[in-house]
Design a binder for these strands. Structure first.
Lengths: 337, 337
DNA sequence: AGGCATTCTGTAAACGTTTCCAATATCCGA
DNA sequence: TCGGATATTGGAAACGTTTACAGAATGCCT
């Protein structure tokens, strides 16, 4: 396929390049006749603008970037998707930047900034601490989504999240109220993951309030993902065989756990209860359906975009907490053992 | 954060811009002393190259793009991920372009071509027919991954896939050999989806070979996704309640089906058998685990990259078929009704 | 000391846009 | 008929790189 430049189009249409540019950008000061003439040529030869040249020229045009690390976390991907929907038609265009789990996030953001002066970022997922320095260095408005950044002390960061601690406490309460006392916790305190840390606190809050003596060494595992959860159960059972419930910090982990239990000949929920977190679609489709904490993805998405826009217009950063919903599921039952 | 240009760096380091450029691009013709001086400044002020300017300049540098539509299809996302792994360290850099399900793919490819002269594409997923015209118009080497494009007549397209028809036939054979005769088919002949069309043919091959009289109107549904499959079961059961097996064309569909059956009080596999397709991680973690056809993602990824490279170096297009593996699963049992 | 390689560095012209500014054409009222 | 306002259009200078090409410095050999 031939590549035409704006110059070629100008020549073919018998006008100046500046005129073609004006037509392409929908400027009002072009006569209808000229516009038509130019568009005809554009159509005919399938001209496509070169965005490198375009962005090189006016990198000033403000825009915002949504950073998503990893394609595995369906929950975060869903939130990101809803963010772009929310951002449709706003004055500042939003774009999503997917980066690898292991990629250098700072590098990616600096590149976005260098290339196009990204005016603001929405960062999904945890690890506020790690990201603080970066956000401070960039000095651009940022919104942490799904994690509380109110304690970060950053001047340029808002955040929106549920009360993870309270949610996990509520979930643990549910298990304990059903008579469970030996509850494994999966995902707790994973290194550098502040969301999981908050959730872990919540679980501990509940155990403490119920006066349960708890030895983390015996009950807590910190791996994640389907496979990680599966293997965690194997490890837990090396130490204790009398577990009657497993509280996990994501729906995938819960699924890994159910499979692992089932492979050990245990039934869920008759023998062991299991809980998830996030309220993903799969939690409802799994058999048994997973009791979970549903995060209001649409609201988180909407709030994140709104908070960023506020800051872009000079507003102060704010930290918003949205409500979660406890979802019933077939994966929980009364403790019988 | 301040934005520095290569010019600023040159000034601060007391050298010419061309020297900085050479250092940045690792050219050999720079003295060690100068290189160090420049790098110090780069480090100190956190200079980041502007890629727009870079790519604007030498758009000639050949590269290849992997196009992935939609983030929902985990199977395709996995394959894409493995492709980039395969492509690490090759002379031609590969990049992945994620586009929305509904987005204009042609537009995206033309943009890639206009911006950087993409020298080749790998297209994942079905819809060869729709894409033919586009591939022809672009005239750039393309590889269709996971779908057979040998019948397209394109001069510039290779393809790599399993024999979908044979795989589905084998799967249906398994069901029929277990005594099932009333088998619903989900995903069959979805409009414009050639992969599903091939699989549908395979299912019909098997039914025919087993001499089973089959009325598609009663047994076949063409929606997909978790939710679509769930609803398809509801529709099927409006017509027939005596189904003993459901053959689906993806693992997600199988999961939606199991959930739907279970919600009707039917057990899988005791009352109804269910089969999936693709061999995704979730199929193995589901309870019951889903009997499925495992596609060799690594091999498909590797072959796709290899085929594209071949064509980039002037080779003829080829159409490669790779082997699938039938995966056992708890979701199948003998027909008893 | 002069000539010639051998390194290294600087100048300037691209790449394809956008946009400021000036130039031209058109129209209106006096 | 003219002055001036108003619509259009064109010319040319950026934007931040890369890369020929030419130039300067150094070292070595005669």
């Amino acid at each position: 396929m031939e590549i035409y430049t704006i110059r070629d189009v100008a020549r073919k249409a018998g006008v100046a390049v500046s005129t073609v540019s004006r037509v392409l950008n929908g400027r009002p000061d072009v006569s209808e006749e000229t516009r038509k003439k130019v568009m005809d040529v554009v159509e005919k030869c399938g001209f496509v603008q070169n965005r490198n040249a375009r962005f090189l020229k006016h990198a000033k045009e403000p825009f915002a970037a949504i950073i998503v690390r990893g394609r595995r976390n369906m929950f975060l991907n869903d939130v990101a998707e809803q963010m772009i929907e929310c951002a449709q038609g706003l004055k500042t265009p939003f774009l999503v930047k997917y980066i690898d789990e292991e990629a250098d996030e700072f590098e990616a953001m600096r590149q976005l900034y260098a290339d196009r002066r990204a005016g603001g970022f929405i960062l999904l997922g945890s690890r506020v601490d790690e990201r603080c320095e970066m956000v401070r260095a960039l000095g651009v408005p940022c919104v942490f989504a799904t994690v509380d950044a109110s304690g970060s002390g950053l001047e340029n960061a808002s955040s929106v999240c549920i009360d993870d601690r309270a949610a996990t406490r509520a979930m643990m309460d549910r298990l304990l109220d059903k008579g469970h006392t030996r509850v494994a916790v999966l995902g707790g305190c994973r290194e550098g993951d502040d969301i999981f840390a908050h959730r872990y606190q919540g679980a501990m809050d509940s155990l403490r309030a119920h006066g349960i003596d708890y030895d983390p060494d015996e009950y807590v595992q910190t791996r994640f993902s389907l496979k990680g959860a599966y293997e965690s159960i194997e490890r837990i059972f090396e130490k204790r065989q009398d577990i009657t419930a497993v509280l996990t910090m994501s729906d995938s982990m819960a699924i890994g756990v159910v499979r692992a239990l089932r492979d050990r000949g245990l039934r869920v929920p008759q023998d062991v209860s299991v809980t998830g977190f996030d309220g993903t679609e799969m939690a409802g489709y799994y058999v048994p359906s997973i009791a979970t904490v549903s995060q209001p993805t649409a609201e988180i998405a909407r709030e994140s975009v709104a908070l960023l826009c506020e800051m872009l217009e000079g507003g102060e950063p704010r930290h918003v907490t949205v409500d979660f919903t406890m979802m019933e599921g077939e994966s929980i039952a009364e403790a019988i053992r």
